[in-house]
Design a protein around this nucleic acid. Structure first.
Length: 636
RNA sequence: GCCCAUAUAGCUCAGUAGGUAGAGCGCUUCCUUGGUAAGGAAGAGGUUCACCGGUUCGACUCCGGUUAUGGGCUCCA
């Protein structure tokens, strides 16, 4: 007899050993169809496993997040079977679940997307057959025998410490796997191969090159379609395309990974920085600037020469070696050392929009998202140990203010002491607790990444979430216990003794270039009024009205409104269309009527038109809307 | 850096069994002087098809290399 306790504390009693499906059916037939796996004593198990002792059982249903991972893991097996059926020589290696789906690395001849249809057809055959996943437990020796023709699986098996090794079989296909799996392949309702790429066995370049096949799967075809739609949407928002279309920036062979910003891109750039400066001044920061190129001696002292050399550009000037800065901090150290500080001067918050260069691998470059030259909205805060918490809290509040302005949500991740690190246990503990306390006070949940911190201190990474729900790491707050030491920084305490300041590095936009790109995709090029490169376009209805249109432009420009006059010999319809497709927030048309009455006809991007707006009636709310940096569209 | 793919007009892209190039948009000019999402016509524009070599009577096309870009791997702001 077995007693099974369900999450609602009800107890089901079974005379013989039931499996998960039996228990689910005992609840209801319909419920059982939505069950994917079960959790017993914290372990995820297949529904087909027999329950032989009393336990608490929780079903994982298609609604649970874990369920999708199980489905995708099973989908990886199905894809592997399909590939194996079509390419009998293919050697399977590993096939894990990733964020948006799954992949399987396979040792086979290169395949391309042209091969997808036939693989997908085979996958669908397997799904239609509703093959059940059967778990088998074998000994290590048996497993080695079964996979004796596959060196990769053999390597994996040899690394397993368990004497008992589980295999999963669907139809005639068997794979090494910990499980659990969905009950049968029929549960996969939406599956699609996404892309292929090369990948190395064990991510090691010296090892065999494998074919990585990516796929994704869902319980519902509708979910798959929604996902594919999201990808389409992301493609449409590609900042490289929009940047070209809106004439914001461009990329050139002559400087790979170093973007060129056009006039319109610079308008936005300056608006972003203007906002940044305003917020930072308000938060008690000063702004500084350090050179782009500094002597090798400095980089040796900071440790970059030893640890970051392969990413640094160097040059020789008058027979002395220089490096172009990949980070602003060493320059900031010199700046600090130029002064002398009392504890009363701290915290010292020194911001710097620093242009840094990092020699990224050629294959890593990608639009504005990954470049070799970029600006950091850096700041170094020097403080006493008891200021850690309040300073971190201050940065978090600033982060919140700034990201909210763009309608970006965010979450926090704390990275703690890595294996290789400097500093004492006490220092690390004080620093880490300072970060934790600040985050607790701030009141937002955070994820902890154990051992992911920098060797010189723990850090908080800030991940923003854009309009499509994609996350990007932008901001970071890093405590540094190394540089103050290396540069022998000090301040005079109340006790008239020298003390070592605590230092943090922090960025909010992160890389301004990258943040710019994220904004382009977040807004899909349809920027809020305060950010739009061209805020208003003026369309005279005929050529005679062009001088008047320029007069109006002059009036708006004097109020700081970015506007242009479109005097092309095109129809009004055409000019309106062009302004609409370029997302110009305010489209002003001027005809005889408007000239006579000194009014404007104002069209907003939603297609609404308001006629007879006097210039004063227009300017005042628009300027206010811009000055307040309102995210929502303006209504005239 | 590695794997795969791509590179043709300012932009998006077509094209040639290997016989020295096209479209749409944009631009210029002209006609139209228009009232809220594409008016019409003509024209210019490629140091000739990313660059360097090779094969060939002949290469934009085939082969090799280089560079850049895209997708991955790795790394990361």
């Amino acid at each position: 007899m077995v007693n099974i306790t369900l999450p609602d504390n009800s107890i089901k009693v079974f005379e013989s050993y039931p499996n998960g499906i039996d228990v689910a059916i005992s609840i209801s037939e319909g419920f059982s169809r939505n069950c994917v796996a079960m959790e017993i004593n914290g372990r995820h198990l297949d529904l087909t496993q027999k329950i032989k002792e009393d336990c608490s059982l929780k079903f994982i249903t298609t609604k649970d997040k874990e369920a999708l991972e199980i489905l995708r893991h099973s989908s990886a097996h199905v894809m592997a079977e399909a590939v194996q059926n079509l390419y009998p020589d293919a050697l399977l290696t590993i096939g894990p679940v990733v964020e948006d789906g799954f992949y399987y690395d396979i040792d086979m001849k290169p395949i391309s997307e042209e091969d997808f249809p036939k693989i997908e057809a085979e996958i669908n055959n397997i799904i239609k057959a509703k093959k059940t996943f059967e778990r088998k437990v074998v000994s290590k020796d048996e497993a080695l025998e079964i996979f004796k023709n596959n060196p990769y699986k053999t390597e994996l098996i040899n690394e397993l410490s368990d004497q008992e090794i589980s295999l999963y079989q669907q139809g005639g296909f068997t794979d090494l796997c910990r499980g659990p799996h969905i009950p049968n392949t029929g549960m996969i309702k939406g599956i699609k191969l996404m892309k292929t790429s090369g990948a190395y066995w064990r991510a090691d370049q010296s090892k065999a090159q494998l074919q990585r096949l990516y796929g994704t799967a869902f319980f519902d075809k509708k979910d798959l379609n929604a996902y594919l739609h999201l990808i389409e949407e992301a493609k449409k928002r590609d900042h490289r395309k929009i940047g070209t279309k809106l004439d914001l920036y461009s990329f050139h062979q002559e400087a790979a990974g170093m973007p060129f910003f056009h006039a319109k891109g610079m308008e936005m750039w300056n608006v972003l920085l203007e906002y940044w400066r305003e917020e930072h001044k308000r938060a008690g920061y000063v702004e500084t600037k350090t050179p782009v190129m500094l002597s090798r001696h400095l980089w040796e002292q900071s440790g970059h020469w030893e640890n970051y050399r392969e990413n640094m550009y160097t040059s020789v000037v008058d027979e002395e070696e220089y490096a172009i800065k990949p980070m602003n901090c060493p320059g900031g150290m010199i700046l600090y050392k130029t002064g002398s500080y009392s504890y009363r001067d701290l915290p010292l918050r020194a911001g710097e929009i620093g242009l840094v260069h990092r020699h990224e691998k050629s294959g890593a470059l990608s639009g504005l998202f990954r470049v070799r030259a970029f600006h950091q909205d850096d700041a170094h805060i020097f403080m006493t140990p008891d200021q850690i918490e309040s300073e971190i809290l201050g940065v978090l509040h600033l982060v919140d203010r700034i990201y909210s302005r763009f309608g970006l949500g965010f979450h926090l991740e704390l990275s703690t002491r890595p294996k290789k690190s400097i500093g004492s246990d006490e220092q690390w503990e004080a620093a880490t607790n300072g970060l934790k306390n600040a985050m607790n006070k701030y009141g937002k949940d955070y994820v902890i990444n154990e051992g992911d911190g920098a060797f010189y201190g723990p850090k908080i990474d800030i991940h923003i979430k854009d309009a499509l729900g994609r996350t990007w790491q932008c901001g970071t707050i890093q405590l540094d216990m190394a540089l103050p030491e290396r540069f022998d920084l000090s301040y005079k305490g109340a006790d008239n003794e020298k003390h070592r300041p605590i230092m943090i590095h922090r960025v909010i936009y992160g890389s301004i270039e990258r943040f710019f790109g994220i904004l382009v995709e977040h807004f899909a090029g349809k920027f809020p009024l305060w950010l739009a490169p061209v805020q208003a376009v003026i369309l005279p209805i005929n050529d005679d009205l062009a001088p008047h249109a320029h007069d109006v432009r002059q009036k708006l420009a004097q109020q700081g409104i970015r506007c242009e006059v479109d005097t092309r010999t095109e129809s009004l319809k055409k000019k309106i269309r062009d302004a609409q497709v370029n997302y110009t927030p305010l489209i002003i048309t001027i005809g005889e009527k408007e000239r006579e009455t000194s009014t404007l006809s104002v069209r907003t991007l939603d297609g609404n038109v308001k006629m007879g707006v006097t210039i004063e009636e227009f300017i005042s709310p628009v300027v206010k809307h811009i000055r307040n940096r309102v995210l929502e569209d303006i209504a005239i």
